[in-house]
């Protein structure tokens, strides 16, 4: 089976999946949309109450949750829209200028 990781813009036609099918889940995870950021959220774990209100509002599913705790942003996918900062009832997220995660 042809895997998405082996497909790129140099792949010859013989090695592409027929009809552009993909046989795996979530191959988009390998795509870096973090490079799109002009603003970057900064997570302050010390003030986070883990209310989780930010998580479903993230259009990019870039806020991982594990064992009842939200973790730091997945900066590979975060596009820096800033919705999370706005919905956070606590000062646990602040947006900073620039695309680089700190």
């Amino acid at each position: 089976m042809i895997c998405a990781k082996d497909i790129n813009e140099r792949t010859p036609w013989q090695d592409l999946t027929p009809g552009g099918e993909i046989y795996e889940p979530g191959t988009a995870r390998a795509f870096n949309t973090g490079a799109w950021r002009t603003h970057t959220p900064v997570f302050h774990p010390e003030t986070c109450k883990h209310c989780m209100l930010c998580v479903p509002f993230c259009p990019d599913n870039a806020i991982p949750v594990k064992d009842g705790k939200r973790l730091d942003f997945n900066y590979m996918h975060c596009k820096g829209c800033g919705i999370c900062e706005n919905v956070c009832p606590f000062p646990a997220i602040t947006m900073v200028s620039g695309g680089v995660a700190r």
């Binding site: 813009e9 010859p12 036609w13």
Partner: peptide
Amino acid sequence: YYMEHKVQ
């Protein structure tokens, strides 16, 4: 990719 798929 489009052209490769058309060739297929």
